[in-house]
């Protein structure tokens, strides 16, 4: 006589996690006759047949039996692995439920690579600074990992290793700072930062991050802009002054000074609580000018 066995179902959430990370197994068991199977152990074994965990059915809703969700650690090497859930004690094949296979997937750790504080206008042939941050998607210690800065032609212009310093206020963002040589002529290039591949317990995906390097001709003129409140004529510190690609902030006296190449510019002066002021400027000589800003009225509380 053929014996009908019940079924076991395992849901893996999330389906993919970082190598060495944790995922959750949700186990449901249905008996051949819809029996109450509380107390039935379920053995979870990995791809090598090693026991991961044994858990007991502890709930029955009249049709389906459930075990409390368990958290398991996936393998350290990336890949998809076939694991098995086997009802019953080891060596006891009398359980009325068939074993079931399921897949857990371990991903290579992602490496996030950030580049910031690259000046928007770099005088051709001069040196410039850039900040680089590296973070693993699983929060691995990145100390000692190599970082390279590669120019548009593929040449490595600088390299360094992460010292272990974290960017202030971050949660595991390792940082490095670079001093780099700019191209000799005025142009815009795309450079890259990359993390040098390294051996370790966990495999990290190769990562690059592109950033723009804009070189400009040597500065010819000085543009001095004083930001003031139009109504009170009070100087306005911490205002942003943008004459693309040049940028500056006003100082405590409300003054920003930009060294620029000759040409036509759209100058914006803006900052908290003020509508941006815009002016077209043809720079053919040193310029000193005032930028009166209109205060944005506070939101009305009448309405």
């Amino acid at each position: 006589m053929e014996i009908t066995l019940g079924s076991c179902d395992v849901v893996v959430l999330p389906e993919e996690v970082d190598a060495g990370g944790e995922t959750t197994l949700n186990i449901e068991v249905t008996g051949p006759e819809g029996e109450d199977l509380r107390g039935l152990p379920i053995r979870i074994t990995d791809h090598a047949g090693a026991l991961v965990e044994t858990i007991s059915i502890d709930r029955f809703d009249g049709q389906v039996n459930r075990a409390t969700n368990i958290t398991v650690r996936v393998p350290d090497a990336p890949g998809s692995y076939t694991w098995q859930a086997t009802p019953g004690e080891e060596g006891d094949d009398s359980a009325p439920v068939e074993p079931v296979s399921f897949t857990v997937t371990a991903k290579a750790h992602a490496t996030r690579l950030l580049v910031w504080d690259v000046p928007t206008a770099i005088e051709a042939g001069r040196r410039f600074g850039a900040k680089v941050g590296v973070k693993c998607s699983s929060g691995c210690d990145m100390t000692g990992r190599g970082i390279e800065i590669v120019d548009a032609g593929g040449a490595v212009q600088a390299s360094d290793t992460l010292s272990g310093d974290l960017w202030p206020g971050s949660d595991g963002l390792y940082r490095a700072e670079f001093d780099l040589p700019a191209p000799d002529k005025a142009e815009q290039q795309q450079w890259q930062a990359r993390v040098v591949p390294a051996e370790g317990r966990y495999h990290h995906e190769a990562t690059t991050s592109a950033f723009n390097v804009r070189t400009v001709p040597p500065a010819e003129y000085t543009v001095r802009i004083e930001a003031v409140d139009r109504e009170t004529e009070a100087p306005l510190p911490n205002m942003s002054v943008v004459m693309h690609p040049y940028r500056a902030m006003t100082d405590a006296e409300g003054v920003a000074t930009l060294a620029v190449a000759g040409g036509s510019y759209t100058a914006f002066v803006s900052g908290r609580g003020y509508y941006p002021a815009r002016r077209e400027m043809d720079v053919e000589e040193d310029i000193t000018t005032r930028a009166p800003l209109d205060a944005e009225p506070p939101p009305s509380k009448d309405l």
Partner: peptide, 21 residues
């Protein structure tokens, strides 16, 4: 220095990178 999608940064206000964590 220009936003071809929505024409920002041309007549209204300057644009700024979003890059510093």
């Amino acid at each position: 220095g220009e936003d071809p999608d929505f024409e920002r940064g041309q007549s209204d206000a300057p644009m700024h990178r979003i890059d510093q964590p």
